[in-house]
Design a protein around this nucleic acid. Structure first.
Lengths: 357, 357
DNA sequence: GTGAAAGCGCTAACAT
DNA sequence: ATGTTAGCGCTTTCAC
């Protein structure tokens, strides 16, 4: 654990001034071959690496970006991080990560503390729209996941409302009529998803049964399952707030003795990588998590470098429906069917418009 | 985006010297109530927050820890990060993350660059044991995931050999005789796992068929599946290098028309959260990833604070077998069985020692 | 208990 | 093309 050499050591060893060394390190200038050679020699000799802290003190820039997320254990966020990390590395930036673990209390403190050490922040949060103001007061450029309706803040996100509509439409087209939504009320996107689902269902005069998982996790999906499926009004399709909840829901439903997808179609949002490996493989709406992370980082870096086209712009990524095995036409089944068919529903099916999936 | 107030601004506003403000901010000293009140007032007034960079320049400590991992998309690593993050936050440290994306080229550069900005590093790497030396030359305390046989470096890990033995033993006890290992040769733990598996299999005079997935991912598991299952020597059980490979393998096996787990038992390592939601639910060896992350961070912080019991110690976490549906007694099946029973195997079963699972 | 002054390692004018 | 110098915002002796 040797102490690092300083710029002065190099200057002395090469017989030049510290300014020269500094300029050399930053490639700010050209040099006479003689000086350059001595510099190279001295630097190699001493194993000199310039101290980024001292550099940052002067320049005011750290080449670091703070990223605050809600749960790195959720593959959606892991992918956000992956995308952001990739772009950061490409531009020679460092990522400071904080997983707030859904803890609103600490979130603000952590973010404020992080903000001091970075050039900009990317934030995923459950804070109410009103609180977004203090993000702007951080004194650093911020990119937010999910738009703020009230404040002009750069953000990247997806059209949750459309995504909800798509999923509902998909299920209705499959003949489902009793659709339930297993949401997560504390999320900023929950209402949007409900709105999209309702918008579609209204067109068919269908009602939506709204439930709430208390956490955006598989465990919460498991817990909520029996309440929905063993209650008086069993849905024939359920849309979950996210894939994790859907995965838990599916597992518990099968343990309850239900046959999936015959007895109930299930779908989620996010298209996490492991939905594909569940059984039945999970139908979901892909939000391109990794690309969202890349995009957020790209926008932030653009702003930092002054290439910002629009300052408080909102970048929307297209949601994309991924149909797998967990949603199936009502009545269809590998084995026997025991669901009574409903004439009214069949009538409804005939007047359904065709929509792209 | 207001400019932050400096310590001098506070000193002026409170009518004291900068040294006093500094001492107040760091709680280094007691003050007369009058001074303390003015200080508090001025700080609140100006919204002063001390600049951590300037502080670090002097103290030489950043209160930041670098964490280098191979793939944040792998839930095993995500959990490592989660554990490390939690401990870091608890001790008021910040996490600098770099996902090297299995890229050996950049890994060293990235780690060296990160090391300059932090007080210590936690590293998960595929670098050969010989290369560990340069980690020690970083000039910062390092904790490594997985021990180095050659160099004295603090590390936390798990007994991969024992884990392999456990899994093999489990399968043998279930009556499996043709066991294959679908490994990942570039991993530092691959050989250990093979060694444990072989050690167990040797006791029963069983051979091990070793294959290699070229990446530690579900996609690689899918690709490798047909080669194993449709080849001339179809195994009746396969142990995969990790759960991701196992998940991919299972999915592809079913698409190949195989009945799982009847036709083949499959198991992996890591016990990632989503193995539980696959079908059949995945048997795995739990390595307590999150706890490993916590432990690594705890050790590093201990060393930083001078509480290091042993310096280059190796902390081992116990592997724990988690039996789920993907491994089943040979010949057992929910439906009909078409596997010819083997008298020699039955004989072997009778002399099997009982082992705890 | 409080303040003056000397830097930490580096960059950015501004000379030369 | 190279050197001089004045700090960046803070901590830390060492006086008082």
């Amino acid at each position: 654990m040797k102490k690092g050499a300083t710029i002065r050591d190099v200057a002395a060893a090469a017989g030049v001034s510290v300014a020269t060394v500094s300029k050399y390190m930053n490639g700010t200038q050209r040099f006479t071959p003689a000086v350059e050679a001595r510099l190279k020699e001295a630097i190699a000799q001493l194993g000199y690496r310039s101290n980024p802290l001292a550099r940052s003190m002067i320049t005011g820039r750290t080449r670091a970006i703070g990223l605050a997320i809600l749960d790195i254990g959720n593959p959606h966020f892991a992918n956000l991080v992956k995308g952001a990390n990739r772009v950061a590395i490409r531009h020679d930036y460092t990522l400071l990560l904080v997983d707030t673990e859904e803890n609103q209390q600490r979130e603000q403190t952590l973010i404020e503390s992080l903000a001091q050490r970075v050039d900009g922040m990317i934030v995923s949060s459950r804070m109410p729209d009103d609180s977004v103001q203090w993000l702007l007061d951080l004194g650093k450029p911020v990119v937010l996941f999910g738009r703020s309706a009230r404040f002009p803040i750069a953000s990247v996100g997806t059209d949750s409302c459309l995504a909800g509509y798509m999923l509902a439409n998909h299920l209705v087209k499959l003949g489902h009529r009793h659709i339930a939504y297993l949401g997560f009320g504390r999320s900023r996107w929950n209402d949007e998803r409900i709105r999209g689902i309702r918008q579609c269902l209204d067109e068919y005069g269908l009602a939506l049964d709204v439930h709430d998982a208390l956490s955006p996790s598989a465990a919460a999906g498991e817990r909520a399952c029996s309440g929905l499926m063993l209650g008086p009004r069993r849905p024939d399709a359920v849309i979950c707030y996210n894939d994790l909840i859907a995965l838990g829901f599916i597992k518990e439903a099968r343990e309850l003795g239900l046959q999936l997808p015959r007895d109930v179609s299930v779908a989620g949002f996010d298209n996490v990588p492991y939905g594909e490996y569940a059984s039945p493989a999970l139908t979901s709406v892909d939000f391109q998590s990794e690309k969202m992370g890349e995009l957020a980082m790209t926008r932030l870096l653009d702003e930092l470098h002054g290439n910002a086209d629009a300052n408080a712009s909102y970048a929307l990524l297209d949601p994309h429906l991924v149909v797998r095995e967990s949603t199936i036409r009502r009545g269809d089944a590998p084995a026997a069917v025991d669901v009574a068919s409903d004439a009214a529903n069949d009538a409804a099916v005939t007047r359904m418009p065709t929509t792209e999936e």
